[in-house]
Write a protein that binds this DNA or RNA. Structure first.
Lengths: 232, 232
DNA sequence: ATCTATTGTCTCATTTTATGACAATAATTC
DNA sequence: GAATTATTGTCATAAAATGAGACAATAGAT
């Protein structure tokens, strides 16, 4: 099966990534569709026996997005017995004409380590994996029904992201290296799913002393041009 | 080996618990010493094939403390390749005259799921596990050198506990069901490792509207008796 | 030159937190 | 039983953070 069966994986353990991107308006995540199945899923994979879980996830994100050096945070391990769903897996395998004998290990119970990544939407080249024929961005409030407990994983990732956003100020990982105050505010609003006050937000961000101010950005619009900022 | 070899465990996966207690002054955790080895470790164990990871951890905490319904939070999975330490494990097994053939799976690489528990110090009956001959409380700033990466696990648990303490107000899990404002403050001070202002703390706690006030506690001291509170 | 929409900054009101003051009080001492 | 001691509960005021709006500056369109 395209290389998978040759590798030596840690049994019963996988990882799944909630890869967040921001298109300027909406918070989105990358979703795979498995070939000929109508099954949607988070990008994920298995961990080789001589590979750290973090490295496996890092590699997975790189393969799906083409990006290195991504903000990547392990946020939970999903270890319920009933999260396994051999039915779905079997459909994916048979749709791929796989020897289900040899790959029966994929039908067993799996615990999965959840990661979330924050990436610059514009830099990404979404790339399907060997089982899937499509990968695409979905706004977080327009997700399809995902396989197994993946919708639950997304929900938990969002919770953690929201509580980390202000505290750890990780929002800028969703933006290009230079951005305007308005863009930064829109990221916060999209993640927190609430409107923020422009003046208060601006004062707060500036007072934190974490931003460097650069030249103005002339957008060709009939109004004052905003400064650009970067993370110090 | 006392039952372990008969069970069907998920391979390469374990859990470890940082069990926090508060003795009225210091924040402490429960540490095991393995028989005849001088090796100290966190309480932990393996996950049966038909058992959720949460349930395995819950059961582990119950066996070491005698307590049910404990505040228990999974906070991280430690998945570095180099965290395995076959040397230590082998010493523990041979010290127990175990058939190292049959238990060689315990020498493989393990990923471990970290949990932290908050318990009422006074209710606990610390009980060693089948490999260890002692279990005891250690103040968090006087921990011995622990096996493998367990000191690192404790450090991470402390970080997470600190950031959750105020946000989720989990401090009362370290106290008896009724406690004084001073006791509550001392828990916060011990966990956060910083002095807090009495009046500010009291006003804040009362304003949160999460405490129920009960009868006063007469301690036989020559001063005004404090009210007792419980979590609403 | 005038107009439009957005930006950066300021002001004042409101809320929250810091810091100290003070009266209430449970037990001890005289 | 009155004075003493240590701690508690609450208030008063100062300082800091945030909310809410006003307004001048300005890049481009008209």
């Amino acid at each position: 099966m395209k290389g998978l069966e040759n590798k030596n994986f840690i049994p019963n353990l996988s990882f799944d990534c909630v890869i967040f991107g921001f298109n300027g308006k909406l918070l989105k995540i990358l979703i795979l569709e498995y070939q000929n199945t109508g099954v949607y899923a988070l990008p994920g994979g298995f961990i080789e026996i001589d590979q750290s879980i973090d490295d496996a996830a890092k590699q997975g994100v790189k393969e799906r997005t083409g990006l290195d050096n991504v903000y990547l945070d392990q946020f939970y391990i999903f270890g319920n017995v009933d999260r396994a769903d051999p039915g779905h897996m079997k459909r994916i395998l048979t749709a791929n004409n796989d020897n289900t004998e040899e790959n029966s290990w994929m039908l067993e119970r799996f615990n999965t380590v959840g990661y979330y990544a924050l990436i610059n939407y514009e830099e990404v080249t979404p790339t399907p994996d060997e089982y899937s024929d499509s990968i695409g961005w979905y706004a977080i409030d327009e997700l399809p029904k995902l396989m197994m407990d993946h919708n639950n994983i997304v929900e938990k990732a969002l919770q953690v992201l929201r509580s980390n956003l202000s505290e750890k100020l990780i929002g800028m990982n969703l933006l290009p290296s230079k951005f305007t105050m308005k863009q930064l505010q829109m990221v916060f609003e999209a993640v927190l799913d609430q409107k923020l006050r422009r003046t208060t937000f601006q004062r707060k961000m500036l007072s934190l002393d974490i931003l460097e101010r650069h030249e103005k950005l002339f957008q060709g619009k009939a109004h004052k041009a905003p400064y650009q900022y970067s993370f110090k």
